[in-house]
Design a protein around this nucleic acid. Structure first.
Lengths: 341, 341
DNA sequence: CTGTTAGCGCATTCAT
DNA sequence: ATGAATGCGCTAACAG
């Protein structure tokens, strides 16, 4: 634990008091003016604002928040920033936060539930208006803290479980099922799967389950799979595709755990002279921009991460109190046909 | 301005007082224990910790920070989250923040200096230990606020100007110059440039200037360029490459404003059957992962954004006071030869 | 329309 | 080793 940061003892510590004295009004008047609340004569307002500007006064929100018991922060706890989907969710959050005077405190967990617990504890200490998390996998202690806090809690990305308060996202199980159905309808029968670490990414697992279920309903199975135990990446997708191709040359179509992996698959094919989708077909998940710009657009399942962040904030803005019933908000998914499957 | 969020009036508002009463000690004792500061008998510590756990007490940092005048927040103001480089910087920040008990408050400006001003004002109100910004383009008001705040200020990404306090990043002008030199040495003479909006991305402009200078030193110039006025993207890079190729077929090598754009260029070539680098060569900037996984690895200039975030935090952790002299920290750059130029 | 009073929850002297 | 008193800077009643 590093040493705390003591604020520099700037002698020029300007508070309401200083402003009030200089402007010859009371502190409450200054306070009212700074918050545009309550009635103030235009004359005094101008007089005060002038000295505020002159002195460069910035109200101390720490004190303000303590006095009013209002919250001006929203906690956000996500697994990582290196998977592009989370920055996208953050964009949605920032955009929905813009008209508000709430600010986001952001922490990352590295897909570690214990770290999540620590982050949640740290954030709750700031008495935020709400806290947004990714997924439903929390430690018991985390769950207890969230419960007791009484604030709004949004579990994002996934809606395949019952939330503490609100869930916003898409059904990954249903998305996987839809992928399976789609590919069967297109005539594929020999399926492969290329994936990354399921322990870190439970949603990839849910999609996988959905796929298997759809195949099973048609009497089919996944004939071969190439799984890596690291995080998803273009490089991994590329390597695992090579492996799948050599292990199971009969596979007609590979479903990938996400678009990063699938793009790696496309790159492998481009390099090895494999024709898509005739020799081998590739199907991704996420609808990343880059997939659309490939020489042949990537066939994939789009989900809207920006919307997830946005809806999450909108949901908690409705009321500071949790509803009696947990709420689930489905941001949907959509097949993008593309040209690789 | 949306309504504030009033914290739910949970009757179970647990404060030091409640814990102290239940544990039959004074508030100061509880406080000391929670902060591991000052001497406390093991027996009482255990007794208190037990009731802390039982009651689920979480100290209120708002009150704590106000009372102690210590700062527990670090403000981060970046242009956007959609350009992958900023999430990477954030990763570095988060990683350096981990052993600390500081937390990051993050805002985005959409490349708008007035929004930056608003974000900085909002963040300063939280009396953060430090504030990290991208670049040197701030409004006068922003500059004044940062100055008066007395806290540490880090200007990130770029080190081509004199910082307020600390600058961390790479010299984009020198990077551009190095790119120019490198390509000249490899024998290229007919240069093209493919870029995006310079108003939003001043660093791209600095690189461009560096490139031009290097070419000029060898009596060369950029013969043709394709500029879009939107943000950088794979799609834009692809479209502008098509334009450049038809407008100026004589161009041997195109330097791109960044890797997103350059990957778009590569995709165009792959689709149009243009052989890289013989028919046309492509050179990027940033060293994004995806470039390395292309069928032919993208020739580019690597810079380390994670390191920028990390060094930024390290720099402000050294001392809560600004040094007399502004400090510049160079995180460097490095040519990645690749196979597209 | 403006001022006065009394905390918000905690950390910090200073006593004991 | 522990407790009591004071105030951080501001907002929220209430008076006037």
């Amino acid at each position: 634990m590093a040493p705390r940061q003591r604020l520099p003892d700037r002698k020029s510590k300007i508070t309401v008091r200083e402003v009030a004295l200089r402007a010859e009004v009371s502190e409450s008047t200054v306070s009212r003016i700074m918050r545009n609340k309550g009635l103030v004569a235009d004359a005094t307002r101008e007089k005060v604002m002038e000295t505020v500007r002159a002195m460069g006064y910035v109200p101390n929100r720490i004190a303000g928040s303590l006095a009013s018991l209002d919250a001006f922060l929203v906690g956000v706890v996500i697994p990582s920033l290196s998977n592009i989907v989370f920055p996208e969710v953050l964009q949605g959050i920032q955009s929905a936060l813009e008209p508000t005077d709430l600010q986001a405190v952001i922490s990352t967990t590295d897909y570690n539930a214990d770290r999540e617990e620590a982050m949640v504890r740290g954030i709750l200490a700031w008495k935020p208006a709400a806290i947004l998390l990714a997924g439903f996998d929390h430690t018991d202690a985390t769950r207890r803290m969230l419960d007791q806090s009484g604030i709004r809690v949004v579990e994002m990305m996934d809606i395949d479980s019952t939330p503490i308060d609100v869930a916003v996202g898409t059904s990954h199980r249903r998305a996987g099922h839809a992928i399976g159905r789609h590919l069967i309808q297109r005539g594929y029968r020999r399926f492969g799967y290329v994936g990354h670490d399921w322990n870190a990414d439970r949603r990839a697992r849910l999609r996988y389950d959905g796929i298997c279920q759809a195949l099973a309903e048609s009497g089919l199975t996944i004939a071969a799979q190439a799984l890596s135990d690291g995080p998803s990446s273009v490089a991994t997708g590329r390597a695992q595709t090579a492996r799948l191709r050599s292990d199971a040359p009969q596979v007609e179509v590979a479903i990938y755990s996400n678009d990063d992996m699938a793009v790696g698959g496309v790159f492998h094919c481009l390099g090895a002279g494999i024709r898509l989708p005739d020799d081998f077909a590739v199907f991704g998940f996420n609808g990343l921009d880059i997939g659309r710009e490939l020489p042949q657009p990537l066939s994939t399942m789009r989900s809207n991460r920006f919307l997830i962040g946005q809806r999450a904030i909108e949901a908690i803005l409705v009321s500071p109190e949790r509803p009696k019933q947990p709420l689930t908000i489905d941001t949907g998914f959509e097949i993008f046909e593309g040209a690789t499957a």
